Amino acid sequence: MSMPPAPALELEDLHVASSDGISILHGVSLSLSPGEVLGLVGESGCGKSMTGATAMGMLPPGLSLRSGKVRIGGQEVQDLDELALSRLRGQKIALIPQDATASLNPTKTIGKHLTEGLRRHRGMSPEAALTGARELLERVGLTPAEKWLREYPHQLSGGMNQRVAIARALTGAPDILIADEPTTALDVTTQAQILDLLLGLARTRNLALLFVTHDLGVVAQIADRVAVMYCGRVVETAPVKAFFAAPLHPYSAGLRASIPPLDARRTIVPLPGTVPTPGALPEGCAFHPRCGRVLEQCRKDRPPLEAFGAGKVACYAARAPA
């Protein structure tokens, strides 16, 4: 009997806080296997992007990892210095940003963006890096590659720049990709092309892909598993089919119900209320003021994330006897 592959990425009990003591992440734990696509979902302000930034060791100024562990390929990296972390970024783990155009240097050609990464991460000669850049552009569907190598970011569309950002993330041949809302600003056709590209990379290169999004429709297309975040906590994880068949947490069910339906007989049911700010979370379960299934225990105690059904859920109501 073969053993399951070791996780490519493990996040264990991450606690992130600001310099003035406001907690942003509260005990986030996730794992991601080689070749797996994990959709990390939730409303804006729930901690999705912050989780990705913590995994990358790229927290914004004023925020720090107070406790918890980040393991990349089994190696703990949270205490590495900046030089050691910079070697890991690109070679082991890479980020595809939300706004690809803004992330690219407008004074550099596309070829320069890619050859610099290939020379830094793989130690290639200028000639080999140029060949590698052509191959990367072809891999992400920008052909003829020779034309795009000479162009600047402002000469490309948003979808083309997103492909360049993916190619740049691949310059170090990483094992893990974190895609932070990479399709938000794209039209539907381009979005589908980018999703197909990312899914193909995960499958053919055995990449672990953490896909950060607020769009459950995208998750249904691309993910193997789903992790739902609310107020800096993971409140549910499940295989994607089980999740969409019967989400366990009332927040997950609310997100599911707010997806525009293909069936005209089903109406959209928006979630009531808004996400509270990190410094003003309610007692007990942070979702209870918005929850239609709230129990008295929910108002007092914070539910732990525990195995239930096909996945895990942090909800007293979901685990209560029917």
Rank of each mutant, 00 (worst) to 15 (best):
M3H: 12
A8F: 04
E12H: 15
D13Q: 15
H15I: 15
A17Y: 10
S33P: 00
G35F: 07
E36Y: 06
L40V: 10
S44Y: 02
S44N: 08
G45T: 05
C46G: 08
G47N: 12
G52M: 05
A53V: 00
M58G: 03
L59H: 12
L59A: 13
P61R: 14
P61H: 08
P61A: 13
S67G: 08
G68W: 14
K69P: 00
I72K: 04
G73D: 10
G73I: 07
G74M: 08
L80Y: 15
L80V: 14
E82P: 07
L88R: 07
A102C: 07
S103Q: 03
S103E: 05
L104T: 07
T109P: 00
L114G: 05
E116S: 04
R119D: 00
H121V: 04
G123A: 02
E127N: 13
E127V: 15
A128D: 14
E135Q: 15
L136F: 11
L136M: 07
A145D: 10
R150N: 12
P153Q: 09
S157P: 09
M160K: 05
Q162G: 03
R163F: 01
T171P: 08
G172I: 04
A173I: 00
D175M: 13
T183R: 02
D187P: 02
V188I: 07
V188F: 01
V188Y: 01
Q191M: 01
A192Y: 03
I194G: 07
L195D: 06
L201N: 08
L201Y: 12
T204D: 14
T204L: 11
L210A: 13
V212Q: 09
H214L: 05
L216W: 01
G217R: 02
A223L: 13
D224L: 10
V226P: 02
M229K: 08
M229T: 14
R233P: 03
V234I: 15
E236S: 06
A238F: 02
V240L: 00
K241F: 00
F243S: 02
L248F: 08
S258R: 01
I259P: 01
P260R: 01
D263V: 03
R265P: 02
V269R: 06
P272F: 06
P272L: 09
L281F: 11
L281G: 09
P282G: 05
C285L: 04
F287T: 09
H288K: 03
H288W: 14
Q297M: 00
C298Y: 08
D301F: 11
L305S: 12
A310C: 05
Y316V: 07
